[in-house]
Structures are given as C-alpha cells and as structure tokens.
Nucleic acid binder design. Structure first.
Lengths: 85, 85
DNA sequence: TTATTTTATGCGCTATATCTAATATTGACA
DNA sequence: TGTCAATATTAGATATAGCGCATAAAATAA
C-alpha cells in the first residue's frame, strides 16, 4: 500500500482491508480472531458494507496494524500540502 | 489541521470533526443539514461515540470536505515512510 | 475430478444507531 | 445579569449490525 491510502467509500475501505489481509497471508477467520469478530463479519466489511460500526472497523484496522487518518478532500495527492482552513 | 491528522480512536475522530466544523463557523445543526443528519447525531459523534455507523461518519466527513486515509500504524509521523508489506 | 480450505449467505436473536420530537443544559454576548 | 443560540440529553419507534449456528458457493490444492 501507499504511504497513506485514500479510502473514500466503504468499498474502497473494504478492498484495502482485503488487500492488506492477503498480503499478510491471513484468512478472514484468522483476521476475525485477532479482531474479535466473526469470519462472516470480516467478509461483509471487505465487501464494502456501508453501515459497519466504527468500532468494528477500528478493530480490524488495529489487527492489521493500520490506522485512520483524516485529511482534507483532494482530487490528487498534491493538495494534501495546502492549508485551506 | 495537519496534512493528515491521526485519528486512532472515536474520541480523536470526534474532536477533529468538531475542530473542523468550528473552523468553518458551522453549528452542529448546519453540519447536520449538509450531511443529512440531525443535530443530536452530530453531537454524539463529536463526543466520540464508538458505535457510529461508517456511512454516518463518511457523510459528516464529506460535508466537511474531509476524507479518510488508512495508513500503517506508527508511533510518529516518521514510519509513514517505511514500506513494511 | 475430488477433497479441502476459504468466502459468502441464510435465519433468529439481542443490542443499539439514528430517527422524530421535546427539553434540559451550556455557552456566548449584550 | 438576562436573553438567545448552541449543544447535550431524554423517550419512544424503526432499522439494522453483529452474534451463534448452519450451509452454500467459490477458490485452491491434490
């Protein structure tokens, strides 16, 4: 993954989670165990369920050694540098 | 806010949302209108409710012109640069 | 192919997020 | 100090997340 991966939608978030999990060679069940979730729940989130609970998502990210960052919206990486407000 | 603000917990996320909203000079009601949510819901999220739904959070971030990024966990900004997997 | 693992989907259940609506509390400012 | 806007809180209703458990479907390996 990139330094920070843009994940604007639940589907993008799910894809990123799946990609990271596979890079680690883990199954959904293994990830679920580490995150305290069921395999089915991991499946739904990777598929891009929009109504996932924040705490559930955070548990998965933590298990994958990932974290949130929040940034100003930008079409490209460049505007990351601007300070708009 | 910084280029990308770390928001590891619901409380941190809520604080960041509140700070951004105030910088824009918006009330919770105004933000709620733009995000399709009620003032009370905005209040709960800014307070750091952990079980907020992802779609709700995304609606608020979008209204504030913010977005997610997902990054590898790091104690400081530095490890952002590493490519671990 | 067949066997095995992995992922997706189904039902019933409990917990809870957000809603509508009202109200209490807090904060800002004259 | 008082008035008004902003925020927090409450109560009831609706929708749905994630659970347990089971199983189907899909992918992978032998």
């Amino acid at each position: 993954m990139n330094m920070t991966d843009l994940a604007r939608t639940p589907k993008q978030i799910g894809s990123l989670i799946r990609r990271t999990r596979k890079n680690l060679g883990w199954s959904q069940t293994q990830l679920g165990e580490k995150a305290g979730l069921r395999q089915e729940t991991v499946s739904l989130i990777e598929t891009g369920k929009p109504a996932t609970k924040l705490e559930t998502l955070l548990a998965i990210l933590a298990a994958l050694n990932l974290e949130f960052r929040i940034a100003r919206r930008s079409k490209g990486q460049a505007s990351d540098i601007e300070e708009l407000f």
